[in-house]
């Protein structure tokens, strides 16, 4: 039963409620880091990691600090603080482990801090009512990881398409971001096929 619930959460965050393509969250890195496939994969992995762990910690902070002390109105600011701390940590790790990736991600790595998809997933964890469930923590982490995987999927697909569009005969005024927005819109329409799915 519990495994089933977790599976449903995972599938629905990856495909049905994909953070980028159905909820339109996290568009800045989606458009900014999708130029090259390699950096898209790196960015995706970083986001999966950050989303999973920040889901874990924000959930604990919310349940055991914010709720008992009745200060849930601080949710947003507390979550942003936690996420920012994490991103700094990930940044340091990537800089040590893979300097090449670090430089190709550039400004977008610190920008995960303000990636609305990360804040979105942590807030949605709370709004989905996971707090009242026994399995809440696990569900939150699964939703976080699923959200990250969904983001990575969208990012990688977009990177593949943009690499192909490099050689396309696109009208001058549509080159770069404009055509990327159109691709994003068409991808979102394709992902409508998953809408209303019941597992």
């Amino acid at each position: 039963m519990e495994i089933n619930t977790l599976f449903v959460i995972l599938i629905s965050t990856i495909f049905i409620n994909n953070y980028v393509l159905s909820q339109m969250l996290g568009l800045c890195p989606f458009l900014g880091v999708s130029k090259k496939l390699d950096s898209a994969i790196g960015m995706g992995l970083a986001v999966i990691f950050v989303m999973g762990l920040s889901s874990f910690f924000t959930f604990i902070i919310y349940k055991y600090v914010l709720v008992p002390f009745d200060i849930t109105y601080l949710t947003t600011i507390a979550f942003i603080l936690i996420i920012a701390g994490f991103v700094q940590f990930v940044e340091m790790v990537i800089e040590k482990v893979s300097p090449v990736l670090y430089y190709s991600l550039g400004i977008f790595l610190p920008l995960i801090t303000t990636n609305c998809a990360v804040l979105g997933v942590t807030v949605l964890n709370i709004e989905s009512g996971f707090v009242n469930s026994n399995m809440g923590l696990l569900m939150a982490v699964v939703q976080g990881v699923g959200g990250g995987i969904g983001f990575t999927l969208a990012l990688i697909l977009m990177a593949g398409i943009r690499e192909r569009l490099e050689v396309a005969d696109i009208p001058e005024h549509m080159k770069g971001l404009p055509i990327t927005f159109i691709v994003a819109g068409l991808m979102a329409m394709a992902f409508l096929g998953f809408s209303g799915m019941k597992i």
Binding site: I161, R164, L165, A168, D169, I170, P171, M174, I179, I182, V183, L186, A190
Partner: peptide, 11 residues
Amino acid sequence: QLFGGLGFNIF
């Protein structure tokens, strides 16, 4: 056409 016409469209 915005993708460059026949041969360039992704979808």
